[in-house]
Amino acid sequence: MEIKELARLYKQYVINMRREFHKNPEASLKEFWTSGRIKGELDVMGIPWVSCAGTGIIATIEGMHEGKTIGLRADMDALEITEANEVEYKSQNDGIMHACGHDGHIAMLLGTAKILNECRDKIKGTVKLFFQPAEEIARGAKMMIDEGALNGVDGVFAIHLWSGLDVGKVSVEAGPRMAAADFFKIIIKGKSGHGSMPHQAIDAVVAGAACVMNLQSLVSREMNPLESVVISVGSFHSGTRNNIIANEALLEGTARCFNPKIRQEIPDVLERMVKNTAAGYRAEAELRYVEGTAPTINNVECSKLAASCVEKILSRDAVAETEKTTGGEDFSLFLEKAPGIIAFVGIRNEEKGTCYAHHHENFNMDEDALEIGTALYAQYAVDFLNSK
């Protein structure tokens, strides 16, 4: 039986598992029930596994013939969102929701485990199944890598179910697909005073506001206009009441780009701008910059292989192009260690109401996409292992 036929056979199993995970979402690094449920399914299949990165899991399927090793990854964590969908599998955990598709990723990888376990005679090498925690806080991939998950792995592959693509379409383009996602804090130090006598104080609010405005010019005036860069301040906290000039302000934001060289330059550029801006208002500024995820860059050869897999399980017309996104993905750390690709599998369907953005309280998916993703995971694994 071909892989796409097996994916069709296990379609309802994958849908049922997805709904079970959707009903029981857990936040990053707290995926205890999720982890236990996955282990239980792997035990039923007779697939050996080990724990990794706390709640993470590495399962191993050995083929009948020696060869390379491929790692297939699915992330497990949910988001701190209160679900607005009225469905039978609505989240039962208050304030937590699978609003990014990770429930589908887990279910598809379990369906893939069934397929590959049944097709071990066709597998030339080893398949590692990575059930990864804490993607939403950009910590899980690093934790798994630090514990040796990628030791001996020759290639990696992941799927992200994607609301920006219609169901039946798959994007496997080469090159940068998701941005580096870094974070920063700016602490402005001034001097308190009475609101009626600002000349006796150093206003942290005004200095902070000037920093926010001046940061906007970094992209438009210091970055190559052919490069995509985003610098956003999302939080500004200062002051205690209306007639006290604040002595401190805290700004928090994010920086996004696709070019690793630009990523290295941004902290110095930010620090120069905020220190000099604050000094213009007699204040002092401190920048605290934290690297999050690297750019997610798909390997050219792996992209070609993935496109051929999509043609096998669907058709040539199913291979779609979509814009790269400034959203971040810690699968990028896997791609720094081994050649691979992240595929975007479409879940959008206006007629079924699955047309909301990721991280929206009404996010949902056309579950027909789960059969496609399950088949793609399995087909890529087999074809990668059979390639020279």
Rank of each mutant, 00 (worst) to 15 (best):
D77C: 01
A141P: 11
H199T: 04
I262T: 15
A283Y: 05
H237Q: 14
S192V: 14
E367H: 06
L376E: 01
E5W: 02
H199Q: 14
V14Y: 03
F344E: 03
E83T: 02
A357L: 14
A357I: 07
Q264T: 11
A134T: 08
V290F: 14
F157K: 03
I187N: 15
G195C: 11
A201I: 00
I96V: 15
N117K: 05
M17H: 12
D121E: 15
E66S: 14
F363Y: 15
A204N: 10
A138H: 12
P339R: 07
V274H: 11
K169E: 12
E136L: 11
V274I: 15
E31I: 05
A78N: 01
I106L: 08
I81D: 08
R37G: 00
A7T: 01
M45L: 15
L385K: 12
G63W: 07
N93E: 01
H199P: 01
I145W: 03
I341M: 11
K191T: 12
V206Y: 12
T326H: 09
R19E: 02
D317Q: 14
V300M: 10
T296H: 06
I244P: 04
C119Y: 10
C100Y: 03
Y10T: 00
H359Q: 01
N117I: 03
G239I: 10
L385W: 09
K324E: 03
K261W: 09
K30Y: 00
E83F: 05
I159P: 10
E62Y: 04
V233Q: 07
R37S: 03
H160M: 08
K30I: 00
G125C: 10
I347T: 15
N85A: 03
F32K: 13
E252C: 04
D203F: 04
S238K: 01
G190P: 05
A381S: 04
Y377S: 02
V127D: 06
E173D: 14
A174D: 13
D203Q: 01
E135W: 09
E248D: 12
Q264Y: 05
T322K: 14
V345A: 02
D75S: 05
V212K: 09
I297H: 07
K185V: 07
T240D: 10
D154L: 08
R288Y: 11
K30R: 14
G63T: 07
M144H: 00
R316Y: 10
V153T: 11
A181K: 03
I145F: 07
P295M: 09
T277F: 06
